[in-house]
């Protein structure tokens, strides 16, 4: 079966069997290995990507369901100028340790911030209920969001 979609703004055309998950297609067919596989049951959120702006667990999302969709992955965040504001805030706040969950957090937060540009801490924490970080204990991730919001509103 043919899958046509756009990933990080680029058109892609792939031949699939039909049963593949979006995660496998991104990692194996498109070599976008920034999206991580942590559980394959939609519990850890490491595989979160955006499908038409919605944050989905790509490990339990059928690739063919993304036909004609716009997909954004962690590889699409940094522009030519370097890390984007959220990524920078993560770096500066110490929101990254082992880094395996980080792409999923960034994508979930990108979806959240798109809809709620000034989320309070409770909203951030609620929105992160589908993302597990085993290293940081979350405090510096929450701080990174606050830092990003503050810097953006200062711009």
């Amino acid at each position: 079966m043919e899958l046509i979609f756009r990933v990080n703004g680029r058109s892609e055309r792939l031949e699939l069997q039909g049963h593949e998950t979006l995660l496998d297609v991104l990692r194996n067919d498109l070599c976008l290995t920034g999206t991580k596989d942590g559980c394959r049951e939609g519990e850890c959120g490491a595989c979160t990507v955006l499908v038409n702006g919605r944050a989905v667990d790509s490990c339990i999302y059928a690739a063919m369901a993304a036909y004609d969709a716009d997909i954004e992955t962690v590889e699409g965040l940094a522009k030519n100028a370097g890390l984007n504001s959220l990524q920078n805030a993560f770096a500066e706040s110490g929101g990254v340790q082992c880094g395996f969950c980080t792409p999923g957090f960034l994508m979930m937060l990108t979806a959240l911030l798109d809809k709620y540009p000034h989320p309070d801490r409770d909203l951030v924490r609620d929105a992160l209920s589908g993302n597990i970080c085993r290293c940081t204990g979350y405090a510096q991730i929450e701080e990174a969001v606050a830092r990003h919001v503050e810097q953006r509103s200062g711009e």
């Binding site: 939609g42 959120g45 979160t48 499908v51 919605r54 944050a55 989905v56 667990d57 999302y61 979930m108 979806a111 959240l112 609620d126 929105a127 992160l128 209920s129 589908g130 993302n131």
Partner: peptide, 12 residues
């Protein structure tokens, strides 16, 4: 609805 899984589950 706000308590079905994480937000990723709720969004789709």
């Amino acid at each position: 609805a706000a308590q079905v899984g994480g937000w990723q589950t709720q969004m789709v």
